[in-house]
Design a protein around this nucleic acid. Sequence first.
RNA 1: GGUGGGGUAGCUCAGCUGGUUAGAGCGCAGGACUCAUAAUCCUGAGGUCGUGAGUUCAAGUCUCACUCUCACUACCA
Length: 570
Amino acid sequence: MSRILITSALPYINGVKHLGNLAGSMLPADVYARAMRLLGHDVLYICATDEHGTPAELAAQGAGVEVADYCDQMHEAQKSAGEDFGLSYDYFGRSSAPSNHALTQDFAAKLEAAGLIEERVSQQIYSNADQRYLPDRYVEGTCPNCDFEGARGDQCDSCGKLLDPIDLIDPYSAVSGSKDVEVRETRHLYLRQSVMADDLRKWVEGHKSDWPPLATSIALKWLDEGLRDRAITRDLKWGIPVLRDGFEGKVFYVWFDAPIAYIAATQDWATETGGDWASWWRTDAGADDVQYVQFMGKDNVAFHTLSFPTTIIGTNNQGGDQYKLVDNLKAFNWVTWYGGKFSTSQNRGVFMDQAISIAPSDYWRWHLMANAPEGSDAAFTWEEFQSSVNSDLANVLGNFVNRITKYTVGKFDGVVPSTGEAGEHEAWITQELAERLPALIGHYEAREFRKAAEQTRAIWAAGNEYLTRSAPWTHYKTDVDQAAIGVRTGLNLVALFGIIAQPLIPDAAAKILDAIGVPEENRSWDFGDVADLLDALPHGLAVTPPELLFTKIEDEQVAQWTEQFGGETA
RNA sequence: GGUGGGGUAGCUCAGCUGGUUAGAGCGCAGGACUCAUAAUCCUGAGGUCGUGAGUUCAAGUCUCACUCUCACUACCA
């Protein structure tokens, strides 16, 4: 048994996330957490909402509520959306929690003592009308290179050139449209990542063999370009206050405090449950044997491989509390919408709350993991979604459960038959499982989700092949015992299929296991001898065909969803 | 512009350190079966592995150039 700490990238507070966010961090983290629990490991799965930053303030302003109230509401909305998808967090915290305020300020103080924080003055656009400093992206104006009039402060959408907002001609606030903006000097704290570059490179290069290439290549790219110091404070009201003379009214940058919230949320979990957070995070307090796994989309990699590790290593170098660095970092590409981008404004794409309103969470979980964006971006299409659900879930798994349980009721009084001896067909399926079950576990341990789903499906399909081979309905006419062994093996396969399906489709798996009468304590992945698995159910145990496990998606629904949410032609 | 990922069957994707006839699922065609959600099982057709050169006994896999696409490019997060 191992202790496994799992975090998924914190969903940002300004709205319920779309399927791409779900597929790229929260869902795989949950599937991994469930699989590891089934394997008997001690798992702690932590997530939280990321609540600070300019977009949160503006979203609250747009909604006409105080930002704290806005965050309260959206935190609950996201928590509930996560629950709807069966995300099995041990704790779903908040980056705005008091624990994170204290811990972030504590980290900052230690980094300061380590000489890793430096005060610098920079120039920033201030909008008098909005009474706020504007991040580069919120300043627009005329591009100094191509005269395009709608250029953003960070980049011109017309000529593609990277810009400095100070260079824009006729700049205006993208928030209010006001041209009453000026350049002001402002003082900020910088995290001296540059002095940590060699340590970081050594650490990242040491993980070339056990992190996805996506993760190491992005981190090394930044290091190759020369790691620059990064401002870790902002001129905002909402956030974690900077305790320093002259920094009244300033807060820490959201990307400084958000990853620290992984730890703070664990503290909140401990407070709520009586657990010991330090034993999960601090190597000087018993966390040496913890394996820490992070899940995130590719946009988050730099922060998790460079900035946050700088915070951790810098703090550790001060002596005192010793925090864990990530051991395994699983980075995902994007789920795209028919090869293009998700877009709220253009009505393209599906958000979590909408998704759950049109199809059960298992359907989404299965499709998104069977097509996870692991090697490259993965295109979501309604047609593929329909195909996944109808073929894999309804036809291969659902029909298997249905055919054998109904036959049991029809011919064997609805109980597990006790007669018949295992023969060549049982030997065949035993051999199949002896090869496939370890492969399945291996894929989960390696966090290869597409392959795990593929192997799961292959095991289900092998069950159908077994039934074709053993054909109890043929033998029933001449040799009931021969039919009985086929039915008994088939019913045990149903139980096994439910057991292996749990990480991906927990709701359907529970229905199957309930129908076949498998008690909770027998649902783990402690497999042992495969031959025993095929005669595990007590003889005479009553089974009932479950209600329809998966309803097929009709072409008309696909047409309607395409219309409603956008699709190919949008 | 720079850097990184990707470009493999009609579609969505696997192919580790280069090695016999390039794989899977879906879709398609034919057959089998009839217990089952017109499901399942078997068989088959389909690819000059983005383009062009190079290294090698051998290249989807390594090198170079080009091209398309996505991402990042440090004050969006």
